[in-house]
Write a protein that binds this DNA or RNA. Structure first.
Lengths: 121, 121
DNA sequence: GAATCATGCAACCTCGCAGTTGCATTTATC
DNA sequence: GATAAATGCAACTGCGAGGTTGCATGATTC
């Protein structure tokens, strides 16, 4: 076998798997209310449910459900402190999702370049 | 007026607006079937509806609906060619969405750093 | 320990999404 | 021009998401 394996094509299977894995993250990001909550947590640090409900037009229970969905996607986490429950931003999954989008873009660029070389010759 | 305006703080309002604008893009990306379609279009170039339906377990009409949703988010576009309708990937909105995620991450990093300096003094 | 604040739990409603089936329409092909 | 292929259009079903109201529970504070 050749001493160096070919790293030029990083396996389309793995890319597709990573992409499919981040589908729930995108689904969680696909709601304006949840994006607003995420932005608030990201800018203001840890906040309680009532604090997050304060500026909104929806009910505390609705906010709770949205926070549960964000937590299910791994985008936020909660910590109990006394009688209130503090929610905080969790950046890991967001970075993974961003890398997934980058991977799609790069795959697109590669496909485009292959098409160009195929047309030229 | 000063010859250079201050570009250090790019306005949290603008960030929130950009973020909210890309909510439908994330919603469109939040479905495994649509991610699969997008991946196929991205790797294989322009494809017809029947071609995209071929490998799938769902109906042609369902694929059509998913493509309409992707088109509504500006992620794909269609071109009629003869009796078939070719769909192709559209990278602009995807790049915008990626930049939105980057903006969130940077905002988070800045907030974290502000918190650290506030604790230290 | 009684009032109060923050949250949890559960039932209920509405609406849109994902998917289907059936049939009509346009375009190639022979 | 008849047949077949690719798509368009419309109605229907099932189900889960988003939101609400009402009441119960746990933690603070006086």
């Amino acid at each position: 076998m050749s001493p160096r394996t070919e790293p030029t094509v990083p396996k389309a299977h793995a890319k597709a798997a990573t992409l499919r894995k981040s589908a729930p993250v995108f689904a969680a990001l696909g709601d304006p209310t949840r994006l607003r909550l995420l932005g608030a947590l990201c800018a203001g640090g840890a906040m309680s449910i009532t604090q997050l409900t304060a500026g909104s037009a929806i009910t505390r229970q609705a906010v709770t459900r949205h926070l549960d969905i964000l937590a299910g996607a791994g985008l936020v986490s909660d910590v109990r402190q006394g009688r209130e429950r503090l929610w905080q931003f969790e950046p890991t999954r967001l970075h993974e999702a961003r890398r997934s989008l980058e991977a799609i873009g790069q795959q697109w660029d590669q496909a485009l370049q292959r098409l160009r070389t195929a047309v030229e010759r």
